[in-house]
């Protein structure tokens, strides 16, 4: 209530909040806020990437074997393409939001949503395969090594694999929820999203999800080389 009161009093842009002087200040503040949030996300994943690097460094052999033998590069590559494409369509969504083209904006958002479902679908296929092969860390973990390497470290590999791709998937799921909300609000012509800033902020989030996958893909599926 206080917010509305302030708006009326100041006669501001309808989506401008009372604490800001003008829309420009508000937008820039959102961008700074969003980026500092992404910094926390970088550090959040960073902890896991550090753990991965250290275990990888100390157990290069088994990590290579586990990655190459049990993770399928084609699926990973396909998912990379899916995510990159979704990133493109998200960028276009922001573009059309800036151009105030509501229909195209919704189409782009819908396509991004579709991509994220495809991504999760492929991920689910991969995970169910790992479940079936008892690669889920825990009591039922089983791993057969061709080169007779330590299975304990294989468990660490899958532990990190599930933790990192799982955390990434959680981000995708959160992204899906946000996209649905955004889409509904845009379709309903709500003033809050009519302005492009919420879409742009979601776009930043979605591109960040993409960046995480850009690193996860080579780390788990590719390196150091198929020989």
């Amino acid at each position: 209530m206080s917010v509305e009161a302030a708006h009326d009093a100041h006669g501001h842009h309808p989506v401008q909040y009372h604490q800001f002087e003008d829309m420009e200040q508000q937008n820039e503040t959102y961008i700074v806020g969003m980026w500092s949030f992404l910094v926390t996300e970088i550090m959040f994943f960073g902890g896991l990437f550090l753990a991965y690097s250290i275990f990888r460094m100390n157990n290069q052999a088994i990590f290579t074997e586990a990655g190459h033998r049990y993770l399928e590069v084609d699926k990973g590559a396909f998912n990379t393409v899916v995510l990159l494409t979704s990133s493109l369509s998200m960028a276009m969504c922001v573009y059309y939001a800036q151009k105030a083209d509501r229909v195209k904006q919704l189409l782009c958002l819908g396509f991004t949503l579709l991509c994220s479902f495809v991504f999760l679908g492929v991920k689910a296929m991969e995970w169910s395969k790992e479940f079936a092969e008892h690669h889920l860390p825990g009591a039922n973990f089983a791993y057969v090594s061709d080169a007779h390497l330590s299975t304990a470290k294989a468990q660490i590999f899958f532990c990190l694999y599930f933790a990192m791709t799982g955390l990434h998937a959680i981000h995708v799921i959160v992204g899906i929820l946000l996209m649905v909300v955004l889409g509904v609000l845009i379709a309903a012509r709500r003033p809050g999203v009519k302005y492009y800033m919420p879409v742009e902020m979601f776009g930043l989030y979605w591109h960040f999800v993409d960046i995480v996958w850009i690193f996860l893909f080579p780390l788990f599926y590719l390196i150091p080389g198929k020989r």
Binding site: S145, L149, S150, A152, K153
Partner: peptide, 9 residues
């Protein structure tokens, strides 16, 4: 080598 012999093969 005793605990995880396959690692030191």
């Amino acid at each position: 080598a005793i605990r995880n012999p396959e690692e030191t093969l």
